[in-house]
Computed example of a mutant assay.
Amino acid sequence: MILQILPPEGIIVSESFFDTQLLFVILGMAAAVFVIIKGAKLLSKINISKTVKKPSYTS
Rank of each mutant, 00 (worst) to 15 (best):
M1L: 07
M1P: 10
I2G: 15
I2Y: 03
L3T: 06
L3C: 11
Q4L: 14
Q4C: 15
Q4K: 15
Q4S: 12
I5H: 02
I5F: 05
I5E: 08
I5M: 04
I5V: 03
L6T: 11
L6D: 12
L6S: 11
L6Y: 09
P7V: 00
P7W: 10
P8N: 14
P8C: 13
E9S: 08
E9Q: 09
E9I: 03
G10M: 10
G10W: 10
G10L: 10
G10R: 03
I11K: 04
I11M: 06
I11Q: 10
I11E: 09
I12Q: 07
V13G: 02
V13S: 08
S14P: 05
S14C: 09
S14H: 05
S14A: 14
S14R: 15
E15H: 04
E15Y: 01
S16W: 15
S16H: 09
S16A: 12
F17N: 00
F17I: 07
F17M: 05
F17H: 08
F17S: 02
F18I: 15
F18L: 14
F18E: 14
F18R: 12
D19E: 13
T20S: 13
T20N: 07
T20M: 05
Q21Y: 15
L22H: 05
L22P: 04
L22N: 13
L23R: 14
F24M: 02
F24Q: 00
F24S: 00
F24K: 01
F24L: 03
V25R: 04
V25S: 06
V25P: 04
I26M: 01
I26N: 02
L27P: 03
L27D: 06
L27V: 01
L27I: 03
M29V: 02
M29K: 05
A30G: 05
A30F: 01
A30P: 00
A30E: 04
A31G: 02
A31I: 14
A31P: 01
A32E: 00
A32Q: 00
A32N: 02
A32S: 01
A32V: 00
A32D: 00
V33I: 04
V33L: 13
V33D: 07
F34E: 04
V35L: 06
V35K: 00
V35G: 05
I36Y: 06
I37D: 06
I37W: 03
I37G: 00
K38V: 15
K38Q: 07
G39S: 15
G39E: 12
G39C: 10
G39D: 09
A40P: 08
A40C: 13
K41F: 13
K41D: 11
L42D: 11
L42R: 08
L42A: 15
L43E: 14
L43Q: 10
S44W: 12
K45Y: 02
K45T: 06
K45G: 06
K45L: 06
I46T: 01
N47S: 15
I48K: 02
K50E: 09
K50N: 08
T51P: 09
T51C: 10
T51G: 14
T51L: 12
V52E: 09
V52W: 03
K53L: 06
K53C: 08
K53H: 11
K53D: 11
K54Y: 04
K54I: 09
K54M: 06
P55K: 00
P55Y: 10
S56I: 13
Y57S: 08
Y57F: 07
T58E: 12
T58V: 13
T58G: 10
T58A: 09
S59G: 15
S59I: 11
S59E: 11
